[in-house]
């Protein structure tokens, strides 16, 4: 079932929406994509075709000539911090039916739900030029509900300051954890690179969701326009038909820079378009991760 971003955005209850997205995402997957640092043995059960051979107890097989699968009760203590870009540039829909910010908010909610569902701690940093909202990572349904309510209250506006947001996110994470950045990444200052380098150095696992509208990649006008930057307010006169080639080259270079930057520091880079159904985007990512893809 496809979860249309526009349809989901129309549902006010973010908890319900995020649960719906997560249910749609992990149904059919054999295992959780995220693993904590420890797992406690629970019991044996007979091997059934399809079980992961990693959990087969081979010593017991040698003794009894029967296949048993070990089962664990996960006692993970993974801490996840979501850094949500709430700057003015995110308040753009292009030719999509939802803005990038709405999409990013739904994505953040779904991610929080996904992490919380497996008993891990999740927190939120919503930022623009300053920190708009922040919640430290904690587990439990009550915290998740609070996080989703906070997400729902957050509005887009102001300039992007990704470096400050990353610094604050790492402050909030007392130990190594998972950092999820959801942004359009229109901030390429040196400080951002330093923050990313630092996050990788500390040993955080960083996932960067690069949220874009298709219109941003293709340049959606063909005639003379005064283009206004929503964050700086700067206005330039341009002609779409004339500028399209140079623009596409520039935006491609920008996307490539971010991809290679993330690869350099061992960060996971996921590009999502607001026109893509949310569950499809999330499922593709989770499946890739579960299969040990890019990480």
């Amino acid at each position: 079932m496809v979860l249309d971003p526009a349809a989901l955005a129309a549902i006010a209850d973010l908890e319900l929406v995020s649960k719906r997205i997560v249910d749609g995402t992990i149904s059919g997957l054999h295992r959780s994509p995220f693993h904590g640092y420890s797992a406690e043995f629970s019991q044996y059960r007979h091997y059934r075709p399809g079980d992961d051979l990693k959990y087969v107890d081979w010593k017991l097989f040698a003794r009894t000539d029967r296949l048993y699968t070990k089962q664990f009760r996960e006692t993970t203590n993974l801490a996840c911090q979501i850094a949500l870009d709430a700057s003015a540039s995110m308040d753009y829909a292009g030719e999509s039916t939802v803005t990038k910010f709405t999409y990013a908010r739904l994505l953040a909610g779904a991610f929080a739900h996904l992490v919380s569902r497996q008993g891990d701690a999740v927190g939120l940093v919503a930022y623009a030029d300053t920190l708009k909202q922040y919640l430290p990572s904690r587990g439990g349904q009550a915290h998740l509900r609070s996080l989703l309510l906070t997400l729902g209250r957050t509005e887009a506006g102001g300039r992007t300051n990704l470096a400050a947001a990353l610094a604050r996110t790492m402050d909030l994470l007392k130990r190594r954890g998972l950092v999820v950045v959801i942004s359009d990444l229109y901030d390429e200052r040196e400080e951002v690179e330093q923050a990313l380098r630092q996050a990788a150095h500390i040993g955080h696992e960083v996932i960067v969701f690069h949220v874009l509208s298709r219109a941003e990649v293709e340049l959606p006008f063909h005639d003379d326009v005064e283009v206004e930057d929503p964050e700086s307010g700067r206005v330039i006169l341009s002609n779409g038909a004339v500028a399209v080639r140079a623009y596409r080259e520039a935006i491609s270079a920008f996307l490539e820079r971010w991809r290679s930057r993330c690869a350099t520091y061992g960060l996971e880079y996921v590009r999502v378009f607001t026109e893509t159904p949310l569950d499809a985007a999330l499922r593709a990512y989770v499946r890739r991760r579960a299969l040990g893809g890019a990480a």
Binding site: P220, V225, E226, V227, E228, S232, I236, A243, I251
Partner: peptide
């Protein structure tokens, strides 16, 4: 020319 708000404005070459 009409005015449009565009987040990637800094990539748009001026006329």
């Amino acid at each position: 020319a009409r005015r449009v708000i565009f987040p990637a404005a800094h990539f748009v070459p001026p006329a």
